[in-house]
Design a protein around this nucleic acid. Structure first.
Lengths: 260, 260
DNA sequence: CGGCGCCTTGACGCTTGTCAAATGGTGTGG
DNA sequence: CCACACCATTTGACAAGCGTCAAGGCGCCG
């Protein structure tokens, strides 16, 4: 973990932009958010930002660049990835008003975050209705993704599960400026993909090969090109409604400067 | 759907009690909630209170008695139950700030709810910090349950999945005054249990028989007695942390009058 | 050059799904 | 009171999907 020397208000300007994309903030709202103590930080891949079972620290984070993921593990060590996060996502919104972490948040790639005071953000979220509403939308959209993942791992067969993950990543990466929906790079091993869809790495491999053989996708290492979006979406039973992408009032969030 | 003739403030008093259990409300908070337009209503089993794909109506509900569930279905008609709800649960908190429903909420049994104005509750949630905090806690605790269910259907084998569902129901029913953790009644068919844990009804049957044969539970129709809570919990890999039961400041919620 | 991840492939086995039929309880109508 | 239909549960035989184990290939880095 490595702290930048940038100033606090500049760091929180990322957060203001993101929240404004969810729900318009007036200057007073924006200033309240800007006043939250914050800094920019790097985390190396594999770093745990939140640990299951611990009390949340006072610092919580929003992704500026890189990818993060939520995960839980069974007592036998079997890992399940619960969601994947791109720039603009709040990694601690799910614990903002809970006193003990029920899952772990980990950096998937080299990760740049705005790290800000949990107590202060909580206070702003409760005292400024527009900020509260933006954060509510954010937290509820995430919860919607959890629900879709229950459906995905609980009710779909292997090819549909993997295809569904690809569709979600395609749209979310596109929304975060990480590629187009037709061509993107997944910085995950097949073992990690398996942990996300509830399959073994061996079966993920077979399934990806199958999707290639059917002409739905094309692979080059961890780069994916979607050959036929319509057919992939059908195979995946993918309906983007659950992402609540239209719950954004203006444009999507992208950080002010590349910054990474 | 059938409306009671009781007055509005009496209906909302259930909501005040529930919210106070999550976070203490002062008299001003309580009055703001009591002023939300509301009524008590019955729903018959199978009724859909929220429908996937629709815009939420202005009325949303909190359970007073009976059980409800959230579900989604794949395009092939495969159903997945996402969560089960007891008295005190808000059935629309997950859509409170979203403009389109991403899943369906259905009455599992005959269901009595407080039905209140969504717009008004939203306003109170944003303008009164204590109410907002109580609702946040409620919504985030639910999201935590979704995450555990992703783990359950994605990473556990059939016996553990079913056992885990039993453990959760045991604790939640106990918390809602619907039985003790050692003996309760599950008003679900084995097909519905299968839809909750991602198994076929036939395999649920075999699995339940297995749990009985191992001496973990005892069944009489849909009544369950837990013979050995420790061993069941171990078999289920059940850790109640994710229910965030301790996030309740005072006692649990139970409606003022039996009312059903 | 050698070692180490990760991906790939094949053979095999177990868990779970599918199909089908029997059992049993419950409510209804004769 | 019995006959019947209906539904959920139970059971068995079989099939299929996915997991497990193991070996080989490839790229990358020391």
């Amino acid at each position: 973990m490595q702290q930048d020397n940038g100033n606090h208000r500049e760091a929180m300007s990322h957060v203001v932009r993101k929240l404004s994309a969810r729900f318009p903030l007036n200057p007073v709202d924006a200033n309240a958010v800007l006043d939250v103590p914050a800094s920019l930080r790097w985390h190396e891949p594999g770093t745990h930002l939140v640990r299951e079972g611990e009390e949340p620290r006072d610092y919580c984070s929003m992704v500026v660049s890189g990818l993060a993921l939520r995960q839980k593990t069974t007592s036998s060590g079997q890992r399940q990835i619960i969601s994947i996060h791109v720039c603009g996502d709040f990694l601690d919104a799910q614990h903002l008003f809970l006193e003990r972490a029920d899952h772990t948040v980990e950096a998937l790639t080299r990760l740049r975050v705005v790290e800000f005071s949990r107590t202060s953000l909580r206070a702003v979220a409760l005292s400024r209705p527009n900020v509260g509403r933006a954060l509510w939308t954010e937290a509820l959209s995430e919860a919607s993704i959890f629900r879709e993942w229950v459906l995905n791992v609980g009710a779909r067969k292997a090819p549909a599960r993997v295809a569904h993950l690809l569709c979600e990543i395609a749209l979310r990466f596109e929304g975060a400026g990480l590629g187009s929906r037709d061509a993107f790079h997944i910085p995950m091993s097949q073992e990690q993909i398996g942990d996300a869809v509830g399959l073994t790495p061996v079966h993920v491999n077979r399934t990806l090969k199958g999707l290639s053989a059917d002409g739905l996708i094309e692979r080059d290492g961890r780069s994916i090109r979607i050959r036929n979006w319509e057919r992939l979406q059908t195979a995946a039973d993918f309906n983007p409604l659950y992402l609540h992408l239209q719950e954004t009032t203006r444009d999507q969030f992208t950080p002010l400067k590349a910054g990474a």
